[in-house]
C-alpha cells in the first residue's frame, strides 16, 4: 500500500506501507485535497485578473485599430472587385451591342445580295424562255412547211398513180368488155379503191 502524505513543511512525501494483506492496492491522498485546498472550480484571482486584462487590451486594440484597418482593406478590395465586375459587365455589353450592330449590317448586305441574285435570275429566266419560245416557233414553222411540201408531193404522186391506174383500168375494161367506160366513173372507182386501200 502506498500513501501520499503532506509533511508539515508542505512537501509531498510518498511512503510505502507494507501491510500483510496489501494486495497491491494503491491510494493517494493529500491533506490539502480535503481540508485547505482551494476548490478546483473556484476562479483563481491572478488568472481572472490577467485573463480579463489581456482580453480587454486585445479587445481595445481590435476595436480601435486592428479591426477597422483590416475591414477597410477588405471593403476596399471588395469595392474594387465589384467595380471591376461592373466594368467588365459594361465592356461586355458594349461588345455585345457592337456584335449586334455588325450582325444587323451583315444581314442587310446579305438581303441585298439575295435580292440582286433573284433579279438577275429572273431576267436570265425570262430571256431563256423567250429564246426557247422563238426557237420553238421557228421549228414549228419549218416543220409545217416541210409537212405541207410532203403532203403536196404525196397528193401529186397519188394523182399520177390514180391517173395511171384509171388509164390502165379503162384500157383493160375496153379490152374485156369491148366498150369504153365513162372516164369519170373509172376515175371515181379508182379513187374509192385507193382510199379504202390506204385505210
Amino acid at each position: 500500500m502506498r500513501v501520499l502524505v503532506t509533511t508539515q513543511q508542505g512537501q509531498l512525501l510518498e511512503v510505502r506501507v507494507n501491510a500483510d494483506d496489501a494486495a497491491g492496492t494503491e491510494a493517494t491522498a493529500t491533506e490539502s485535497e480535503t481540508a485547505s485546498a482551494p476548490n478546483p472550480i473556484a476562479p483563481e484571482g491572478k488568472e481572472l485578473i490577467w485573463g480579463a486584462g489581456s482580453f480587454l487590451v486585445f479587445l481595445v486594440l481590435m476595436r480601435v485599430y486592428l479591426f477597422p484597418k483590416l475591414k477597410k482593406g477588405m471593403d476596399a478590395r471588395y469595392t474594387s472587385i465589384r467595380e471591376d465586375f461592373e466594368q467588365a459587365d459594361a465592356t461586355r455589353q458594349a461588345a455585345q451591342s457592337d456584335v449586334a450592330k455588325y450582325e444587323a449590317a451583315l444581314a442587310d448586305v446579305r438581303a441585298e445580295a439575295a435580292g440582286r441574285i433573284d433579279a438577275a435570275r429572273q431576267t436570265v429566266d425570262a430571256e431563256r424562255n423567250a429564246k426557247i419560245a422563238e426557237t420553238n416557233s421557228k421549228i414549228a414553222a419549218k416543220r409545217a412547211a416541210a409537212d405541207a411540201e410532203l403532203a403536196a408531193a404525196r397528193a401529186k404522186v397519188r394523182d399520177q398513180v390514180a391517173e395511171a391506174v384509171s388509164t390502165v383500168t379503162a384500157r383493160t375494161t375496153q379490152l374485156a368488155v369491148g366498150k369504153s367506160p365513162d372516164g369519170s366513173v373509172v376515175r371515181e372507182a379508182v379513187q374509192q379503191v385507193m382510199q379504202s386501200g390506204a385505210r
Binding site: V3, T7, L13, A35
Partner: peptide
C-alpha cells in the same frame, strides 16, 4: 516524518 505521516493517516480516517 514517517511517524507523523502515519499519525496523519490515522487522523484522516473520519474525514
Amino acid at each position: 516524518r514517517i511517524a507523523r505521516a502515519g499519525i496523519r493517516v490515522a487522523e484522516l480516517t473520519a474525514a
